[in-house]
């Protein structure tokens, strides 16, 4: 788990930098894809039930996005709270009661 957290720290740090300094030059119809959000969602969808790795990755991803953005009305922690809520929803509600094909179900 510790090694995975270090890896995810580095990954989200680089993703947040790419998001703010590289990707801004490539908007699709004026919309900028949020790389960190995409990765947080993917990790949360594909981690098994009761694995805290999804929640930890949401916290780290949200924290780096908060660092490298002005935040919502200047509120530091907006992205962390949003990502954490999404992660808790995925891990404690969606995956518990909904069986999604190709994803480890509660009974697996």
């Amino acid at each position: 788990m510790f090694r995975k957290v270090i890896l995810i720290l580095f990954l989200f740090y680089i993703l947040a930098l790419i998001q703010g300094s590289f990707l801004v030059h490539f908007t699709i119809f004026g919309v900028l894809p949020n790389l960190v959000l995409i990765f947080v969602l993917l990790i949360n969808i594909f981690t098994p039930l009761n694995d805290w790795f999804g929640v930890v990755s949401a916290l780290i991803g949200g924290f780096f996005l908060d660092i490298f953005s002005a935040g919502f009305f200047g509120f530091f922690g907006f992205y962390t709270l949003v990502f954490l809520t999404l992660s808790l929803f995925f891990n404690f509600i969606l995956k518990k009661y909904v069986e999604i094909p190709f994803i480890k179900s509660p009974r697996s």
């Binding site: 930098l17 998001q19 703010g20 300094s21 801004v24 900028l32 949020n34 996005l65 490298f68 953005s69 002005a70 935040g71 919502f72």
Partner: peptide, 8 residues
Amino acid sequence: SKDISGEI
């Protein structure tokens, strides 16, 4: 860098 949330 440019902020993703707004024009900052």
